[in-house]
Amino acid sequence: MSFSEPPTGAASTPTSASAAPKPASWVFAEDFAPEPPAAAQARLAAAEVGVEPISRGAARLLGVLAKAINAKAVVEIGSGTGVSGLALFSGMAPDGILTSVDVEGEHQSRARQAFKSVGIADRRFRLIQGDALTVLPKLSDGAYDLVLVDADKLEYGEYVDQAVRLLRSGGLLVIDNALWHDLVADPRNEEDATIVIRETLEGVGENENLFSALLPVGDGLLVAVRS
């Protein structure tokens, strides 16, 4: 995967940019599926604590992906206030368990409230407060159906390394903020977070154990299947 200029001669080939959705279509797609009240409330809680939650469209896609693979064991790196957790639960198997890791206890308290508000039993989620790179190595190899990466951008590469280890064959890796506010596609932007995300995407694209696609949903979702 490369973010450099296109090779010589590529200009004669139609690019996907010509088929990119217009702003109005993008908004229509993001708002296509109605957001449940509990998710809307969790989104308000995110604004209160200064957390940027996953977009409505991306949240819906998370639920679809979880449902498509009948996910029973999911790891979420970055709990936020429960917006993404609720999205995952909407598609997970009825007995599925979510393991969610975050350094902020207050955020996890809000996430717990969001889960309880829709009747999700305590036994169905583990909220682990701590540094993800300390917690993740303690989780079992190949035991998870889906891993969502949505925490410290500067650690995305390390999160992906752990996710590949944690996922079973056929499991899904999902990376939020993969377009990072349109900065990843701008070769002139060399901010630390942008560079790390670019390098992470390139690493996923080159990983022989991952089959991936970058989706322009929300702030960008990279989805990869573990071989």
Rank of each mutant, 00 (worst) to 15 (best):
D141V: 03
G85W: 02
W26T: 15
D131F: 10
A71Y: 12
L148N: 13
G80Q: 07
V49W: 03
G170Y: 10
S169A: 12
V164C: 02
A46F: 10
F89W: 06
A87I: 08
A10F: 13
G96P: 11
V147L: 07
A93H: 09
L173S: 04
E106A: 06
V51E: 15
D186T: 04
I120P: 05
R110D: 05
L127R: 02
D122A: 14
D122L: 13
F3E: 04
P6H: 03
E206F: 06
N189S: 06
R198N: 01
P6A: 06
V147A: 08
E5D: 11
R198D: 00
I120V: 11
L215F: 09
G205R: 08
W180A: 13
D95A: 13
D150V: 10
L222V: 01
Q108Y: 10
Y144T: 07
P7R: 01
G63M: 03
P187G: 09
E48L: 08
V118L: 09
E35D: 13
M1H: 14
V217L: 11
L136A: 13
E206I: 06
D95K: 08
G78V: 04
L222N: 01
G119L: 08
L146M: 13
A193F: 00
S4P: 02
E208L: 04
Q162A: 12
P187A: 10
E155F: 04
V196T: 14
E191I: 01
K22C: 00
V196P: 08
D219V: 06
V103W: 04
